[in-house]
Design a protein around this nucleic acid. Sequence first.
DNA 1: GCCAGTTTAAAACACTTGTTTCATAAATCA
DNA 2: TGATTTATGAAACAAGTGTTTTAAACTGGC
Lengths: 208, 208
Amino acid sequence: MEAAEELFCRRGFKDTSVREIAAAAGCNVAAINYYFGGKEKLYVAVWGRWLEQMREARIDAIRRVMSGDGQRSLETLLESYARTFVEPLAAEERLHQRQGCSRFVELMVREMVDPHLPTDMFVREMVSPVMVVLSEAVETLCPWLEPSVVPHVILSVVGQLVHAIAVRQMFGRCDDCDVPRLDLEQMVQHIVRFSAAGIRGYANGERK
Amino acid sequence: MEAAEELFCRRGFKDTSVREIAAAAGCNVAAINYYFGGKEKLYVAVWGRWLEQMREARIDAIRRVMSGDGQRSLETLLESYARTFVEPLAAEERLHQRQGCSRFVELMVREMVDPHLPTDMFVREMVSPVMVVLSEAVETLCPWLEPSVVPHVILSVVGQLVHAIAVRQMFGRCDDCDVPRLDLEQMVQHIVRFSAAGIRGYANGERK
DNA sequence: GCCAGTTTAAAACACTTGTTTCATAAATCA
DNA sequence: TGATTTATGAAACAAGTGTTTTAAACTGGC
């Protein structure tokens, strides 16, 4: 499963063959079908390993801010949530080598654009539950916000995070072209500041 | 090429076979290799058809705002740029059927996550040139912005747009789950307002 | 030691992929 | 018209895919 995860994250579902996985895991191709019942089932198993954990990590990050004794500002909420996104990548960067989930976030981005999971699984077990908790948090922290714009606001925040990761991938592939270097810490700081201001732009109905 | 474009946009590069394309185009598989020299070359040809056009559309949209006689506000810039993103999708929605480029934006999103174009082609011929012009425009419109944060700001705007399109795709696939309905017009309005406020948050150095 | 039950491994299977062959058909031009 | 080029189409090709078969090897209790 570790070998499968590694390869799926790096190359996606379609571009990873069971033979590669077997070779990386040092086992036979038949073993994969014996234990998992097929490539697709293995893929789901790899996901099952992290889906719950990542969902709970996100929800916990939100809850910790909302019910904690620290300051309950919009900024701390956004920062806490953003960190659950980039933390795995940051951990990898620190250790200078792969470990644990690390690149799983990248597989998430892939799955959004080119899904190979059973229908709705990702939305049902990850997107929706987190959306609910995050919506609540934003609504209580920004009571002036019309409830109808809350989903849009969340979409904006998540969009920035997802795209930042996707672009990191993209720029990582083309080495010599003149693309801005993207520091994870700077990225988080920016997205928090940008989004907080973006949300507060809704505080007063004015439109310049 | 129309058949290829249609299929590539809907299913991506890997999941589209030359036989499917041939069938859709009403020709033989050999013809594809005869005229294009292979599947990959055909893919590049399909891209070549739109890359320049879309790049110029984006650059024109920016230039029109910056050198036009109308008001030169941050909002008009953002709105104009955002429309070049969603316009093809909006056109499709209005006509209630596919036509022209329409879903090509979705292929762009795919290509970012799972590239099958020659190295750097997308970045070199699309991302970088547009980035330059957009940076200039943002810098003149927001002279108070530190030049170093301009790329981040642009990343935030593009991220919201790209993610909005990706999520539309994603939610379009799962029919019955309780996901917010995403109206393109509303989306643009939100992203413009959110981003303008986000950028203006940098106007004064204060951080609540 | 022997015999279930379980696990491994190589090979075979059925299928799809992109590409090529080659004979025929259509078009072009002297 | 007749020669030459260009285009088409069915079949073949080689390489790769996920999965299944089949037999051997291991395992642990008796």
